[in-house]
Computed example of a mutant assay.
Amino acid sequence: MSDEQENAPEANGPKPIRIGKRSLFTPSEAVAVEQHSVTPHVSRTRYGTARIEGRLSSPNARVPAVISQHCGGITVKGHTLKSFAYTTDAVIIRNTNANAILAVYPFTGEPVITQALLTVAQMPLFVGVGGGTTTGPRVAELAMVAEMQGAAGVVINAPAPAETIETTMLMVDIPVIATVTEDDETTECKILAGAAIINVAAGARTAQVVASIRMHHPEIPILASGGGSEERILATIEAGADAITWTPPSAQQLQSQMMAKYRGEA
């Protein structure tokens, strides 16, 4: 018996089931709202920068271009950082193009949180180690652990005294960022205590506080919150900020926008 006769179905046997070329699970154009190109998109900006976008990359957590265009930046270990994304959202951290992450949260600092954020971060991570809710020796201890885990720097909250800045500076080799809300005697003491970077978080008065600190300390690196508009970001940079903290949209906000698109509401 030949191979063809052996593999041929019997005359009275069940007929073979023919599977169509299209699977039930192959999305149609109407169903697949997100269509991705096969190859990465390559372009060049008017500044001469070659840009490559992966087929699955998303522009939704991108830093405003005004920051990179106008900021001088702060160089840490050879990396010039102009934009700091103020977030602890792992999804946003993984998809933003910020130069660094400012991971400060309103709970007692825990090394396991730092480790989780370091796992997804593709850029330098500056993590909060207390100063408000967490005080005393624990701040310096958390800073030491963060340094061992691989954090690029640590952030100490505004209520912490200058002594906490000084103690932490003596125990770690990574930059200590001191958050301030005013240009006052406390800020002066924190600068004298050795804070590597001053982080100005003064709300609507941020640009004014930055200008005041810059006038008294032209050499100190200043990181400052940029607010929600390009006008405020530019005003803060012109006041003397070297780098800007930018708050990206949350993953929940982006998901809501995507679902509205899926429902045909946007």
Score class of each variant (00 low, 15 high):
42 V>C: 09
140 A>S: 07
219 E>Y: 12
243 A>P: 03
4 E>R: 04
37 S>I: 09
31 V>I: 15
108 T>W: 00
112 V>A: 05
101 I>D: 06
135 T>L: 00
141 E>H: 13
181 T>E: 05
101 I>Q: 10
85 A>N: 11
224 A>T: 04
122 Q>A: 13
200 V>K: 04
224 A>F: 05
152 A>M: 09
95 N>K: 15
190 K>I: 00
55 R>A: 12
260 A>H: 12
107 F>W: 05
148 M>V: 02
118 L>Y: 01
236 T>I: 11
251 A>L: 11
197 I>Y: 06
67 I>H: 09
130 G>R: 08
87 T>F: 06
163 E>A: 14
207 A>V: 06
35 Q>M: 15
240 G>Q: 08
172 V>T: 09
93 I>N: 05
40 P>M: 01
32 A>L: 11
165 I>K: 04
13 G>A: 06
220 I>Q: 08
239 A>W: 01
47 Y>W: 01
20 G>V: 03
208 Q>S: 12
28 S>F: 10
5 Q>P: 02
49 T>W: 13
152 A>R: 09
208 Q>A: 14
109 G>A: 09
190 K>P: 03
173 D>R: 13
194 G>L: 02
212 S>P: 08
143 A>V: 09
184 D>S: 01
26 T>G: 12
229 S>K: 05
65 A>M: 09
36 H>Q: 10
129 V>D: 03
220 I>T: 04
137 P>Q: 09
108 T>N: 04
168 T>P: 08
249 P>K: 05
248 P>I: 01
99 N>H: 15
156 I>C: 01
171 M>S: 15
81 L>G: 10
27 P>M: 08
248 P>K: 00
172 V>N: 00
178 A>D: 00
194 G>T: 04
88 T>E: 05
88 T>S: 07
102 L>A: 14
250 S>E: 10
234 L>D: 01
